[in-house]
Structure formats: C-alpha cells, structure tokens
Write a protein that binds this DNA or RNA. Structure first.
Length: 283
DNA sequence: GAAGGACCTGA
DNA sequence: CAGGTCCTT
C-alpha cells in the first residue's frame, strides 16, 4: 500500500469514480476496487482520507495518469465558471475530475451505453468481461480483466450476444476487428484535433456523435467534446437556450463550446453530476 | 436534411 | 420506455 498526499491538489475520489464516466469501480467497505484497465491481472484499490489518497495494486504514475491528477483543475474550473448554474455545480462537485480511461475499454463501454442507465451498462460490461476477460482473484473476490480486442475479435457474433448486449453485438465485433487490424488506432485518434478525431471514431458502426464524444472526453482528453445526452440536452434547452423543441446534437454542443470555452467537456461533466438538483430547481 | 421507427434487453 | 445509432421516408 502506498500513499499520495494531495497537498493543494483538489480531488474527490468518490464522486469521480461514481458519477457515471467509468463503469467497473465497486466500493467494498470504503475501498474502491477495479480490475486494472491495462489487462495486467492486477486489481486497483484506492481510497481517500481527507487530503491523502491510499492506493494498492497500481503505481503512483498510474494513479496520477488515470485520475488526471495532473490536470490544473483550478484553472480549468475558473475558465468555465461563467454563469450561476455552472458556478453552483462547481461548488457542489468539488474535486470531480475527468478520468483518463483506457481507449479500448472506454470505446466498448460507451458502445454498450445506448438505451440504458448506469446499472444496465455495467451489467453488459461485466458480462463481456466474465466471458472474455481473465479471472483475477483479490481479497477473496473474483474479478475479470477487460477483454482484449483480440479475444473479442475471435468470438462470433451470437456468442457475444449471449452477453446480453442485444443489437450492439455487431458493433462490438466491428470495433474489435478495427482495433486488431489497426493496433495504433488510439495513437492516431490522440494525435488528431477534436473534430477530426470525432469524424474518425464515427466511421465505426454503432459510434454516433454521443458515443464518440464520450470516448474523446473520457479517454483522449479532448475537452471540446461535449457529450449531449437526454439530461444535458434538457439542461441546455431549459436553462440556457430556451425554447420548446429538442436541441439538435451539434447545435447543443456548439452552444456549450461557445458558452463555456475550450473546457466545455468539463462543464458538461459538472452539469451532468448535478443533473438531479438542477432539474429539480425551478421547472 | 429532418423526422420517425426499429433494434435487444431488463427495469 | 430507456445516457443511442442506423435506416427509411
């Protein structure tokens, strides 16, 4: 077990892992545990007491990298803090950070996200991991690593469907085939500016604008990516833009980028994390 | 090029 | 009836 003193780094572990950006963290008696996204048969364990992070099964550089402890959160938040609503969300969600997830795991996770709430998405991912990942034992519990693209590419479509992923089975297959064929796909995406990267990801079947934006924001640090789900659409429409009819996806994102600036993706995350409170207020 | 339905599954 | 995408009018 190692410790990492936060000093003046703002970080809220609980909020960051449970706000719905990543799907494999579980809390056992105050300790957050997840199979390592690097497929190295480790289980990451992390917990926080005040200004100290305790961690095990991972290295300090992984901690900093994965939890984006190198983001200058104060500067980012100052840059998006431009209206009372976001100001309130920032106050409420102190220390919330956007993770730097593994691109492959993130891609498949968000392909699985259509028409489902968080538990539904988690279930699909757990089923895939149980079937195609490697077993890891830790503290008397079984975990499964996230399956590699190779492992999924070998499987056939109906076998994947048995993981209860429904019509997303073919999307998952296609994504695996892509990742196997083009093993540097993630470096390529990383090197592209936001819009080109989005376009590239959308070449995949089953990856529309929303899924692409999630992957770009949660795995590639493209902070201009603003995933507009039903909650964010509603918040933007009722609290910002005004009007009756549903906001067009691109227009909604453009509005957010124009209003919040280059870190609009961070603003999205804070609004999303405060969605219930925001929706309850007024209207 | 905008609007509407289908697609799996389970809550 | 859902944190979306695709295919069809």
């Amino acid at each position: 077990m190692q410790t990492f003193p936060l000093d003046d780094i703002k970080f809220n572990l609980d909020l960051t892992v449970s706000c719905g950006q990543a799907f494999r963290w579980r809390n056992w008696h105050g300790i957050w545990c997840a199979p390592s996204p690097y497929g190295d048969a480790e289980v990451w364990k992390v917990w926080q007491k005040g200004d100290v992070i305790f961690f095990d099964g991972m290295e300090e550089k992984d901690l900093i990298q994965y939890f984006s402890l190198d983001h200058d959160l104060d500067a980012i938040l100052a840059s998006i803090d431009c209206d009372p609503l976001i100001h309130d969300a920032i106050e409420r969600c102190q220390g919330l950070r956007i993770l730097r997830q593994d691109p492959w795991e993130c891609l498949i996770s968000y392909i699985c996200s259509s028409c489902a709430n968080i538990p539904g998405i988690q279930m699909r991912i757990e089923n895939l991991a149980e079937k195609y990942g490697d077993e890891i034992f830790c503290d008397g519990k079984k975990y499964y690593s996230f399956p590699s693209p190779e492992k999924i590419a070998e499987a056939d479509v109906c076998e994947i469907r048995s993981c209860k992923v429904g019509y997303r089975d073919a999307y998952i297959c296609d994504a695996a085939a892509m990742a196997v064929t083009d093993s540097n796909w993630s470096e390529k995406i990383q090197s592209l500016p936001y819009r080109d990267a989005q376009k590239k990801l959308r070449e995949l079947n089953g990856v529309g604008p929303k899924v692409a934006d999630c992957v770009l924001l949660f795995a590639f640090e493209k902070f201009e990516a603003v995933p507009v789900d039903v909650w964010i659409e509603r918040i933007l429409r009722t609290k910002y833009v005004g009007g009756e009819k549903k906001l067009d996806y691109t227009k909604a994102g453009d509005y957010a980028r124009d209003h919040f600036g280059p870190y609009a993706g961070y603003a999205q995350e804070y609004l999303f994390a405060s969605r219930e409170i925001i929706s309850r207020k007024g209207e």
